[in-house]
């Protein structure tokens, strides 16, 4: 029971970190960035090759993944999304899907479809003993990373100038422009942060579930997106809460109901929550004006 709970929180923490990327981009650019899951996959591959091919220490590998994914996020935003700033949201959505296909197929060509076994980079770290139960170091690191990211992001968005600019843009793009905020730069920054987080999530995900394929990112991507909506899309604490709840529900569903149906259970809970609270758990209710 407790072991399941801890596993759930650990998996949920990965979802939460991915969901943050979705929610921040959605909050600011009002777009569903479907390529986000594939950025996770790229992060995983970069870390994998840094460790196995270059022989870099894990910390450096993670850093490399973050740098590459951040750059990738900025490039994607510049080339594919920026020209569509004024287009309909569906047009942007399809473009994002195009980018997602592109990343997956580029990865397929570069790194082939063979499954790579990701090394356990936290092997040397000590685990935690709780009575008879052993908690793996990767679990602890994931949860800790999640907390650190959450606190840093909250401080960033409330205390720094850039963070305040981000909130202003998500509130009202036009007014933010009038106040002298560089909207384009702020959106690029959001993509950069989101993609950097995706890199971290990629490394954590691959360490916990050590198989790496060009399609590794898509299912966690969809689930993290669900988590973001679950918590109320656009809200940072919402993404956290949604992610962790989703992880816990998934693990409990697997343990107590049915392994095969666990995804169905996750989505069924999501539907029920959205029917009761149509804007997600922590989402703001926007009143419709005539």
């Amino acid at each position: 029971m407790l072991a399941n709970l801890i596993n759930g929180i650990s998996l949920g923490s990965v979802y939460a970190i991915i969901a943050l990327g979705y929610t921040m981009v959605y909050g600011i650019a009002k777009m569903l960035n479907f390529a986000h899951g594939d950025v996770i996959m790229v992060g995983g591959y970069i870390a994998f090759y840094s460790i196995t091919l270059m022989g870099w220490p894990p910390a450096l590998a993670v850093l490399a993944a973050i740098v590459v994914c951040t750059a990738l996020g900025i490039v994607i935003e510049r080339l594919a999304y920026k020209p569509l700033r004024s287009a309909t949201s569906l047009a942007v959505l399809i473009t994002a899907i195009g980018v997602s296909y592109f990343l997956q197929n580029a990865a397929l060509l570069l790194w082939t479809s063979n499954t790579k076994v990701f090394p356990n980079i936290f092997e040397k770290l000590p685990g935690l003993r709780l009575g008879a139960m052993q908690i793996a170091p990767v679990t602890i690191i994931t949860v800790l990373a999640n907390i650190v990211i959450m606190v840093t992001l909250t401080l960033f968005t409330t205390k720094t100038k850039m963070g305040k600019a981000m909130r202003a843009v998500s509130e009202d793009k036009g007014a933010a422009t009038l106040m002298g905020i560089n909207v384009n730069r702020t959106i690029s920054l959001t993509f950069a942060i989101g993609s950097g987080l995706a890199a971290i999530a990629g490394v954590l995900l691959c360490t916990a579930y050590p198989t790496l394929q060009p399609t590794t990112g898509s299912m966690p991507g969809i689930k993290a997106f669900t988590a973001a909506v679950f918590g109320g899309i656009g809200s940072i604490p919402g993404a956290m809460l949604g992610g962790i709840l989703l992880g816990v529900i998934e693990i409990f569903g697997k343990a107590y109901v049915s392994t095969q149906l666990s995804d169905a259970i996750v989505f069924a809970v999501l539907i029920i929550v959205l029917l009761v609270k149509p804007t997600g758990l922590l989402g703001r209710k926007v009143n419709e004006k005539v």
Binding site: Y26, L32, I222, F225, T226, V229, I233, Q260, L261, D263, A264, F267, A268, L270, I271, L274, L275, P278, T279, G280
Partner: peptide, 20 residues
Amino acid sequence: RLNGDYLAIVTLAFGEIIKN
């Protein structure tokens, strides 16, 4: 009963449930 992106995500969820 839902609107916009929330409706989209619920249809996504139902699609996944049917597949599952």
